[in-house]
Each structure stands twice: as C-alpha cells, then as structure tokens.
C-alpha cells in the first residue's frame, strides 16, 4: 500500500535554524517507522497563512505561534537543547502514525 508522504513545517524566528537543526532528526525518526516526509523551514510570522493554503500535515516549532493553525503543532525546543528530545520525537512519531493511518 502506498502511504502518504507527510509535509512537515519546521518553524523558528528566522526560518532556517530550526529546520536545519531538526529536519534530519525528524526524517530519521519517521523513516524508522516507514513514514516518508518532507521538512520545510519557515519563519514564525508566516505560519498561519502558509498552513491555511493547505498541504501541511504537522508544524514543528521552536517559536511561539499565533493565529488559527488547524494542524497538529509540536513544540520542538528539546530537539535543539537535547533535554526531553526522546519525548518530542515520540510525539512526532505518534502524530505522524495517526495521520498516515487515518
């Protein structure tokens, strides 16, 4: 069965830092459970508009977000600091699995 490829938005204040630091971890974590994904970096002020255009499955952020964002949001600072990293990766894995099986 062909599974859906997930589009993940990695968000921080500049749009480059979080994505460069966490993209690989997120991709590896999901690949281990057979889920393909693409991680795109974005600056925090553009998230609401970007998500409303559609096509984004999960937002992973190290920046506080405002506005109406109707997809799962995962706080990802631990992926930068290392403290609680496994819990965040588990949350990403579970969220992704629900999305591809639902």
């Amino acid at each position: 069965m062909a599974r859906k490829k997930l589009n993940i938005l990695a968000v921080c204040g500049s749009g480059v830092v979080t994505s460069s630091m966490i993209a690989q971890k997120v991709e590896e974590t999901l690949r281990e459970v057979g889920i393909d994904c693409e991680v795109t970096g974005l600056v925090s002020t553009s998230v609401e508009e970007y998500v409303q255009r559609g096509g984004i499955d999960i937002v992973v952020t190290t920046s506080p977000l405002q506005g109406q964002i109707d997809v799962p949001i995962i706080k990802a600072v631990p992926l930068m600091t290392g403290i609680g990293e496994d819990d965040v990766l588990e949350e990403i894995r579970e969220t992704a699995q629900k999305l591809v099986s639902g």
Binding site: G13, S44, S63, P64, V77, M80, T81, G82, I83
Partner: peptide
Amino acid sequence: RNPSGLPM
C-alpha cells in the same frame, strides 16, 4: 516575540 533563553 521569540525569546532566546535555552530551557536546560
């Protein structure tokens, strides 16, 4: 907007 204290 984007506080920079690292929670560690």
